[in-house]
Write a protein that binds this DNA or RNA. Structure first.
Lengths: 331, 331
DNA sequence: GCGAACTGAGGGAACGTTCCCTGAGTCTGA
DNA sequence: TCAGACTCAGGGAACGTTCCCTCAGTTCGC
């Protein structure tokens, strides 16, 4: 049983398909009685315009791609960032009447697919999420000429507009807070350094400590809980005297808390911990996590609006959102 | 600068567009030298077939919709379930060469949009995620005649095939474990009762207790951390003597742990806590959470394969995946 | 009262593919 | 050697819309 076409509706209503098209698209130049007849025929037949035909003739799809760099299949990913960003962005897109196409770009193969997908005209624009600096995808996609924006700054600036949060300022506040508390040996657990956010948070940490003549104590993580736990172990080994840790995101801070607990260190008495992001889980750690709030949901929404601007005006300016220190009990 | 068309490639290669089409689609009935000439022209011009035109003529889109029931915009949602399920499903779909269209169905308005979207032929099939029993969407979408499957059993069975995990068995194991430990007053924090999973977990709890002659102590949550914390407060008020809690998911268990900590109850000494799902965060609570492992990622992947079966064979049978108790320190 | 301007409906060409059908050329077997 | 089968390229009709253009009918101004 094939779906009814514009033609069928026109025949049913006894008018031309042009008129039906006009009614469907809400054009004003159509007589009320014709509109009525057409509407009746539409509901009677249960007509819904065919998307592909529309896309073909109008050369637009009303669809936006959200392209997320996906970790290798082995890694688990209940990643709160993914949930928040994808969900917030989808909501904002839906509010604007756009459909959402989700593209996971993990392997080289899937990157190629993503490129072809965009080139095939399936979408009107795209939003990139958490691309690391070594990822060739942004540059490749930028070459398609489609409007594209990035959630989070890219390694190569100027490639496309982006919305980022103030990583430098936030990390500085976090480390400064530890200094203000009189902490002497402040370590950090960094994120993967091919990501801009991780870079900037580390830079701010280093700079802030340097201003006080202290030395950096750095362990490398990859923004996951387990990497935070492991990095913390290493830090304790490197400097058993450390009395504070700044983790570059909350997930790693949570991992660090576990290691500290297992090592018998009290938080914050022995070791103070500060995270970054203020994910919801930060409210539920023991003790509750002091962290830097980066409004990921709002960032995602703003990124979408940036893209919509770009679509409408042909240009849009990058934005940096402020971050704020949220003091709880871990530091 | 318009993208090159099939026609342009044909002209460039000096062959008919039929031949180009055949080469593009990898049909065997084409002479090697023609294939070569065409391929050269394709790469030279950077040709990528237009998706809309393809979809129109073939009447298929190679796209699957993932339809997620979205909570009202106010509620936060770093929901690990969302991340796991969407990510795992997307991966599986990509592996099958399908594009993913993400549809958030929150408001009545967006439900209507979802319906129109499917009816417009934008997708070949759909996967429903976490629909509550009162949601009219599954029934409405089933009427479109498109192949649709559900991640998690629906309230109205027989509407479409689904993949669920063994909620009954899992919850029974959890409560039994508490009984085996000699716990006397075992409470539960239930999920929203219009969801099948919550229903079943509550039923199993009730039944298992009933078999021992104990009475049920129930508080209602909605699967979020905060609701778990609040429900725990209420339980402590209702029965200060309780010595065990079965939370219907890990997020609520995490909330309950916080309330217990704030109330000065030791876990598991004073109160044992068991969760459900075994999300990654369950490894990082203090103490680590005893819980029932429900393989959400695998469930999502299986749901996708069920849909692919349905697409290929016209029929597919529902599946129930086993659950398993994971004993850690909280009980 | 008549030409000009305007309103609103219909016809039909496009959009860029796929795929059926035709037919030219080649191969096979008796 | 020639009919018949077989191979493979090209022509062109679909797919279901949108939107430009034409044109009939009405309204308006002078």
């Amino acid at each position: 049983m094939r779906r009814p076409t514009l033609h069928a509706v026109a025949a049913r209503a006894g008018v031309s398909k042009s008129s039906v098209s006009r009614v469907i698209n809400g054009e004003p130049t159509v007589a009320p009685e014709i509109r009525q007849i057409v509407m009746a025929a539409v509901t009677e037949l249960g007509y819904v315009p065919n998307g592909a035909a529309r896309n073909l003739v109008t050369q637009k799809t009303n669809t936006i791609a959200i392209i997320v760099s996906d970790p290798p299949a082995g890694l688990v990913s209940d990643d709160p960032m993914f949930a928040m960003v994808v969900r917030a962005a989808s909501r904002e897109l839906e509010a604007a009447g756009k459909q959402v196409s989700l593209v996971l770009a993990g392997s080289d193969e899937s990157r190629l697919r993503a490129e072809q997908y965009l080139a095939a005209g399936h979408v009107d624009g795209a939003m990139l999420v958490s691309m690391d600096g070594s990822d060739p995808l942004p540059a490749v996609l930028a070459r398609t000429g489609l409007p594209i924006v990035s959630h989070g700054r890219l390694a190569t600036p100027g490639l496309m507009p982006s919305v980022d949060n103030d990583n430098l300022g936030g990390a500085t506040k976090a480390v400064q807070h530890l200094l203000d508390q009189g902490r002497q040996r402040i370590a950090t657990i960094s994120g993967p350094l091919d990501m801009q956010a991780a870079q900037q948070r580390l830079t701010a940490y280093r700079q802030t400590l340097k201003n006080t003549g202290r030395r950096s104590i750095v362990a490398l993580g990859d923004f996951t809980r387990i990497s935070g736990a492991e990095a913390m172990s290493q830090l304790l080994e490197d400097d058993p005297q450390l009395d504070a840790v700044f983790a570059a995101n909350d997930l790693m801070a949570i991992g660090a808390l576990r290691t500290l607990r297992e090592a018998g260190r009290r938080v914050p008495d022995d070791v103070a911990v500060v995270g970054f992001d203020d994910i919801e889980a930060a409210l539920y750690t023991a003790p509750p996590l002091t962290t830097v709030r980066s409004p990921m949901g709002e960032q995602a929404a703003r990124t979408v609006r940036l893209l919509l601007d770009l679509l409408a005006n042909g240009s849009a300016d990058s934005v940096t959102l402020p971050t704020e220190l949220v003091i709880r009990e871990s530091a």
